[in-house]
Simulated assay, not measured.
Amino acid sequence: MLVHHTLTGPEDAPVLVLGNALGTTTELWREFSLPFRVLRFDHRGHGASAPVAGPCSIEDLAGDVVELLDHLGLQQVYYCGVSLGGMVGMWLAAHTDRISRLALVCTTAWVPDKARLDERISLVRSRGMEAVADTVVSLWFTPACAPAVVQRFRAELLKVDPPTYLACVEAVRGMDLRPDLVKIDVPTVVIAAAQDHATPTELVRYIADELPDSELYVVGDAAHLAVVEAPRTISVILDDHFGNG
């Protein structure tokens, strides 16, 4: 099954793949205008991508990206991923030769506190996506974020296929990418958000500390979806990082 995707921008420019956070779609990158050929995609069961029955792992989600790259005839790409998208990016960079430069935004290599995800899994199973929407969205944005933006992303979350969402949450809960970090030998920029309570700065910093070739930035006025609240700041960081490729 090929995930939904769009490929836009100059045909002679390097391809930059943008990986979304769990519960979000390509809408995540609405405010970005980058000088690359940009490949956006929706994770399985998200946005316009079809659900896939049964459990999945980070490796399976990364496999969706490899399938997409093969379909488009792309051997090597730049990759930027937020949260779940970053986890997929770490796996791809550690286990394949498809990523030449990497950016990881508000993500983690493992989840130390699994109780929060256990509660989310239980609520979605018993009461559906609506039962977790407000809690999840409260982690995505700071209180200063425009209500219209918050509501737009809440609405997108509620459209995600619940069984696929659960499978993805369980994939995040069960992953441990820490042993893979030393295998990532491509230049990497790691971005944390000072007000991110979903992936606190210390978890993001751990990734930067373990990678052989990385730079760490901390964005101040943003929470978990920092690419939505601080698009200009992050665009500058990404443009500088990938523009030097």
Rank of each mutant, 00 (worst) to 15 (best):
I121F: 01
E59T: 15
R127S: 03
E130W: 01
R116K: 12
W91K: 06
S122H: 03
L104C: 11
L117S: 08
A94Q: 11
A93M: 08
D118Q: 10
D42Q: 12
W110R: 15
S49T: 14
G81Q: 09
T108P: 00
T96R: 07
Y79I: 05
G89F: 08
C80N: 01
D64N: 12
S83T: 09
A94G: 10
S122A: 15
W110C: 08
L104I: 12
G128F: 01
S100R: 15
V77P: 02
V65C: 14
L61D: 10
V38E: 00
V88K: 05
A50R: 15
G63A: 14
D70K: 14
V111H: 06
G128T: 01
S100W: 03
Y79L: 11
R116H: 09
Q75I: 00
G89Q: 07
R44I: 07
V111E: 07
D64T: 12
L92I: 06
V66Y: 06
E67I: 02
Y78P: 00
M87V: 05
H43I: 07
D42G: 10
C56Q: 08
R98E: 02
S83R: 09
V132Q: 00
R44Q: 15
R98P: 04
M87F: 04
A62F: 10
A62Y: 08
C56S: 14
G85E: 05
R44S: 13
G47R: 06
V52L: 15
V82L: 15
M87L: 08
E67V: 05
L68E: 08
G86C: 11
W110S: 12
Q76P: 01
V105F: 07
T108Q: 14
A133M: 02
H71R: 14
M129N: 04
R127P: 00
A109D: 12
R44M: 11
T108I: 03
D70E: 14
D97E: 12
Q76I: 02
I121G: 01
Q75V: 03
V65T: 12
F36Y: 10
R101Y: 05
G86K: 05
D60E: 14
S57L: 12
A93P: 02
I121W: 01
G47D: 03
L74G: 10
C106I: 07
A94I: 11
L68K: 14
P55A: 15
W91M: 08
A115Y: 03
D118W: 02
Y78E: 02
G47C: 07
F36L: 06
S57H: 11
R127F: 00
I121V: 15
P112L: 11
G128V: 02
R120W: 03
L123Y: 01
M90H: 03
S49A: 14
V77T: 13
P112K: 12
L84C: 10
G85Q: 09
A115F: 06
F41R: 09
